[in-house]
Design a protein around this nucleic acid. Structure first.
Lengths: 137, 137
DNA sequence: ATTGACTCTATAGTTACTATAGACTTTAAA
DNA sequence: TTTAAAGTCTATAGTAACTATAGAGTCAAT
């Protein structure tokens, strides 16, 4: 079964432009083209794209996915490499969660500092933000 | 006290380019320039930049900060506007935290699926990723 | 007068796309 | 068979918030 980019887009749920983007980025290149230069894909390409999509949903970067795909393509490489990459990725995600949690706390404190209906002149939020500034200074 | 961009950078902890960027983005424009066209800043500018920096540390976008600054500049506006913006921002942050937490769970499950030293051929992680694909399909 | 440090503008690069323009191909109907 | 619509092509610009660079000009001290 050979399909064109539009159908691949439908099947995969990626946009046409995204697929072209992955082509340019060497993640999924259409190995064959039609006489009129249209990209043609087969079953293996569909699976590869779904693999990419799944990895993206795990927030892996295109560079990381490229690495994963190349490991997948060369079966001699060590599983450790994959493990290590995932490990690093987990750390990164956890750091981001910690940052955002901290952030959330501050924002909520900020929200408490102003109970509406006053003009900005006396807005507690802006006051707080300004005070934080002079402390930092 | 009038200072040039380099000193403002030192005082604020922002890079010189970042300050120029804020200038271009109309967040902090140097109202005066030297004869040789150097940006000149005063105390109020320092405070404004620290305000911006503080907002950035709360992950507010430059657009949001611009809005906050203009509210700050026109004291007739309602505190509610500020409140609402912060509220939205909190929601956004909480959504992101939830996403990442979910993500983290999946990544950890993935990590468990391969205990190293095997060739990629039998790597549990890649296997898992591929299986997820065929399920999605 | 010259050196070195600083600053200027303009431009390109980062990430993972999305959107557009203008041209070409394919498919289906008239 | 012609034609029109839908699909596809490449190349380019835009998104966010910067960072980095090039090439030129300015300032402060020697």
């Amino acid at each position: 079964m050979i399909i064109k980019i539009g159908e691949l887009a439908k099947i995969s749920g990626c946009s046409v432009q995204t697929i072209r983007h992955y082509d340019k980025e060497q993640l999924l290149s259409a190995k064959i083209r039609s006489d009129g230069n249209f990209r043609l894909y087969d079953q293996a390409d569909i699976e590869r794209l779904l693999f990419i999509k799944h990895c993206r949903s795990l927030d892996l970067s295109l560079a990381e996915i490229r690495q994963l795909l190349s490991l997948n393509d060369s079966p001699m490489s060590q599983c450790d490499d994959v493990n290590q990459m995932i490990e690093q990725h987990i750390e990164q995600v956890e750091r981001r969660i910690a940052d955002l949690t901290q952030l959330n706390k501050q924002l909520k404190a900020l929200r408490l500092s102003c109970n509406s209906k006053r003009t900005v002149e006396h807005c507690g939020i802006l006051k707080q933000l300004n005070e934080a500034v002079s402390q930092t200074n």
